[in-house]
């Protein structure tokens, strides 16, 4: 009896260890739980002042770690680069200006354009995930382009080099990019409306 059981276990373990028959799956396994969990980390970064301040709900950019409306009545303008004598690059240089309370900078400094404002401020995780994935609302980006924007875009990358007096996002850029990839590779699931924000 013991021999039979032993043989059975050996055979069974051999079956379990064998590679699955047929060609590899065309797509990696989709894991909605891993996807949503990763998005919640992504969400924490996107809602940090360094990202959200340039994705405001209104027509004015936000400033500071408290995300107050930009002083000087600065407005988005049709192309996201400001209006009249208050265009972004009038004060914001290609690089951060040295010192506290001076204009941060990047060669591409701007908001999303008025016809695709890509609002983060006030969005729930579910709303923001759906918006990010909708090409009509995300600037016409595919998932690959969305990843490129978040992981490699220079203006997005400014968030991790914000200059004096500005707190960087809660994850490093590589850690953020990794979470974006997990979210997308696992099916880019949007959280349920009731998904709670992480307290980490």
């Amino acid at each position: 009896m013991k021999i039979i059981i032993g043989l059975s276990l050996i055979l069974l373990s051999g079956v379990l260890a064998a590679p699955p028959p047929g060609p590899p799956a065309p797509h990696p396994t989709k894991d909605s739980i891993a996807s949503v969990k990763a998005f919640m980390s992504v969400y924490e970064v996107l809602m940090s002042p360094r990202c959200m301040n340039c994705h405001p709900a209104g027509d004015a950019p936000l400033q500071g770690d408290d995300s107050h409306p930009h002083t000087m009545e600065v407005r988005r303008g049709p192309d996201g680069r400001g209006l009249y004598a208050e265009k972004c690059s009038n004060c914001h240089q290609p690089e951060n200006t040295a010192g506290l309370h001076t204009p941060p900078g990047n060669p591409k400094w701007r908001l999303p354009p008025a016809d695709t404002p890509m609002i983060f401020q006030g969005r729930t995780p579910a709303q923001l995930a759906r918006q990010l994935l909708d090409p009509k609302l995300n600037g016409g980006r595919t998932k690959e382009q969305l990843y490129e924007h978040m992981a490699k875009d220079d203006l997005v990358g400014w968030g991790w080099h914000p200059g004096e007096g500005r707190t960087p996002p809660p994850l490093s850029r590589p850690a953020f990019a990794a979470q974006v990839k997990i979210w997308l590779d696992n099916g880019a699931f949007a959280p349920k409306e009731f998904t709670k924000k992480s307290t980490n």
């Binding site: 002083t71 009249y84 004598a85 265009k87 690059s89 009038n90 004060c91 309370h101 001076t102 204009p103």
Partner: peptide, 18 residues
């Protein structure tokens, strides 16, 4: 001296820079 007041505004290529 920190782009907050506008007294130093001039035009660079037609734009009102600080």
């Amino acid at each position: 001296g920190v782009a907050q007041c506008g007294a130093c505004t001039v035009h660079l290529n037609g734009e009102a820079i600080r």
